[in-house]
Computed example of a mutant assay.
Amino acid sequence: MTVLHELKNTNIMDQEIAELIIGHEKVAHVQAANPLDHALLILIKSGYTAVPVLDMHYRVQGQISKAQVLDTILGTERIEMDKLHEHTVESVMSEKVPKMNVDDNFGKALTLSINHPFVCIEDDEGAFVGLITRRAILVMVHREFQSD
Results as ranks from 00 to 15, higher is better:
Cys120Met: 10
Gln68Asn: 00
Ala39Lys: 05
Thr88Arg: 01
Asn115Gly: 13
Met93Leu: 07
Val53Ile: 12
Asp124Thr: 13
Val89Lys: 01
Leu74Phe: 00
Asp37Arg: 08
Val119Lys: 05
Leu110Phe: 15
Val97Gln: 10
Ala33Tyr: 13
Lys45Asp: 08
Val129Lys: 02
Leu110Tyr: 15
Val92Cys: 05
Lys45Ala: 07
Val3Trp: 09
Val97Pro: 09
Leu74Asp: 01
Val30Phe: 12
Ala127Val: 12
Ala136Pro: 06
Arg143Val: 11
Leu20Trp: 10
Gly126Glu: 02
Ile137Val: 15
Val30Pro: 10
Lys99Phe: 02
Met93Pro: 01
Met93Ser: 04
Arg78Thr: 05
Val97Asn: 04
Gly47Tyr: 01
Cys120Ser: 13
Val69Asp: 07
Met13Ala: 10
Ile44Arg: 14
Glu122Phe: 04
Tyr48Ile: 03
Ala136Arg: 14
Val141Asp: 13
Met93Val: 01
Tyr58Gly: 08
Ser65Asn: 01
Val3His: 10
Thr10Lys: 02
Leu131Met: 15
Gln146Cys: 12
His116Gly: 04
His24Ser: 14
Gly126His: 07
Ile79Phe: 03
Pro98Asp: 09
Glu90Asn: 04
Leu4Pro: 08
Ile21Val: 15
Thr111Phe: 13
Arg135Gln: 14
Met56Lys: 14
Asp148Ile: 14
Glu125Tyr: 13
Pro35Leu: 07
Ile64Ala: 11
Cys120Val: 05
Ile132Trp: 07
Gln31Trp: 10
His38Ile: 13
Ala127Cys: 06
Val51Tyr: 01
Gly126Ser: 03
Leu131Thr: 05
His116Val: 06
Glu125Cys: 08
Leu110Asn: 08
Lys108Leu: 11
Asn105Phe: 07
Glu25His: 03
Lys66Thr: 09
Gly62Ser: 07
Lys108Ile: 10
Val97Cys: 09
His142Glu: 15
Met56Glu: 15
Leu54Gln: 10
Val69Lys: 04
Asp82Lys: 09
Thr49Arg: 14
